[in-house]
Design a binder for these strands. Structure first.
Length: 382
DNA sequence: AAGACAGGCAACCGCGCAATG
DNA sequence: GCATTGCGCGGTTGCCTGTCT
């Protein structure tokens, strides 16, 4: 509908960019910024469509792009976020400073997807391929439902962040100052694609670890052994709910700050495998600590609760999340019914109930991390 | 050495959404 | 409210390069 042609105009060049074209584009953007991609090519003297220019800029020429191999933690971030968000590469990219969605997408398709497949993990569902046999329909649906809740929440948050970026860009864009634009590229250009808020990583999983995994009481939580997860059944209420509340708006140091960009990779996988193989005692070290708390902007929930991914089945997450918070604050334990009597975290020994519900999910994520991290470092996969 | 094959990645394409007139 | 425009996203393609035979 009403869509004007873009790259099919006669006379527009397609295909690989030449250094001369790159130079023209760079020079123009450095001098003028990119106000309108559509108008840019002619102004810059390029026989390209605006879309092609934008792509070239965002995926290749932008000064804040990190190229080269992905670090172990970047890989883990991608895998885990993909488990939550599905093929929402732009959302995943917001958690990986200096990486473009296209790069992440390519890396997933060419490396990580195959790696997971070889490890027996379905790269779409992030579950072991024989999981369907091992898991009852009921348990699976619980896993899916809970994951979907988290994913929807993350989706909403990311989109809200994106809105903030757009708004801030609009504000910034109201000034035609070249310096302003240039300084923006230089200092915060990654924020052109990312939220204004500090880069985050693994919010959901962090909350998952802090709020859900640790909530198994003295049993499962104790098994995990996190300093933050030594919850008595009484204190656990407050702490786990606090973790969830922190998760609502948490903002912690960027992945980069937390050592995200360590050079990779074999050694890191090896170290991680060693570490993880000792004991899955505390997922938290993979996730920077919870630090900041902010309020829950209602607008986050106002849109984008649409189920836009097969990973994110539709459902009224906000409602349930609110219920969760309410029940938490009212003293009910949302995560565990069985207090400290669960087994060593490996199974759903106790009967039924929400204890099993979250235990299943904990085990699910444990299995992902286990499978990823415990793969032999000498494996051809790696 | 050369052809075949596979993997990796840059770029293209089409769609959806938001903004605007 | 509708048409149009512009941008961003995700899927896909095709070229380039490295490896194998």
């Amino acid at each position: 509908m009403g869509r004007s042609p873009c790259c099919d105009k006669i006379g527009l060049k397609k295909g690989p960019w030449t250094p001369e074209e790159d130079q023209k584009l760079l020079a123009y953007i450095e001098e003028h910024g990119h106000g309108s991609w559509r108008a840019l090519p002619s102004k810059a003297g390029l026989q390209r469509c605006g879309k092609s220019c934008r792509l070239r800029w965002t995926n290749y020429l932008r000064p804040d792009i990190k190229r080269g191999k992905f670090s172990l933690q970047e890989e883990q971030t991608i895998i885990q976020l993909h488990a939550l968000l599905g093929n929402r590469w732009s959302a995943i990219a917001t958690h990986l400073p200096k990486r473009t969605d296209n790069e992440i997408k390519n890396y997933w398709n060419t490396h990580l997807k195959k790696r997971l497949a070889k490890m027996g993990i379905d790269p779409v569902t992030h579950k072991p391929k024989n999981d369907a046999i091992l898991t009852s329909n009921d348990g699976e649906s619980k896993n899916a439902a809970n994951l979907s809740h988290m994913a929807q929440w993350e989706s909403a948050r990311l989109e809200a962040e994106a809105r903030l970026v757009r708004q801030s860009k609009l504000r910034a864009g109201s000034s035609n100052s070249i310096q302003a634009q240039n300084s923006e590229f230089a200092s915060t250009s990654s924020q052109l694609q990312k939220p204004v808020v500090p880069a985050r990583c693994l919010d959901v999983l962090k909350a998952w670890n802090g709020g859900v995994w640790s909530a198994g009481g003295g049993g499962g939580g104790g098994e995990l052994g996190s300093p933050t997860s030594t919850l008595s059944s009484a204190a656990g209420v407050g702490e786990s709910s606090a973790a969830l509340l922190e998760f609502v708006g948490n903002s912690f140091g960027s992945c980069e700050d937390s050592g995200m960009m360590k050079e990779e990779s074999e050694e890191e996988w090896k170290r991680a495998a060693e570490y993880r193989s000792e004991e899955i005692r505390d997922p938290i070290p993979f996730m920077p600590g919870l630090q900041e708390t902010s309020s829950f902007p209602s607008e986050w929930a106002s849109e984008s609760m649409r189920g836009n991914s097969e990973h994110v089945p539709s459902g009224n997450f906000v409602e349930k999340f609110t219920d969760l918070l309410l029940s938490t604050s009212s003293g009910d334990r949302p995560f565990s019914e069985d207090g400290g009597e669960s087994d060593n975290g490996s199974g759903s020994g106790g009967g039924g109930g929400s204890g099993d519900y979250y235990e299943d999910n904990k085990n699910y994520w444990n299995s992902i991390l286990n499978l990823v991290n415990s793969s032999p470092s000498h494996s051809p996969i790696f």
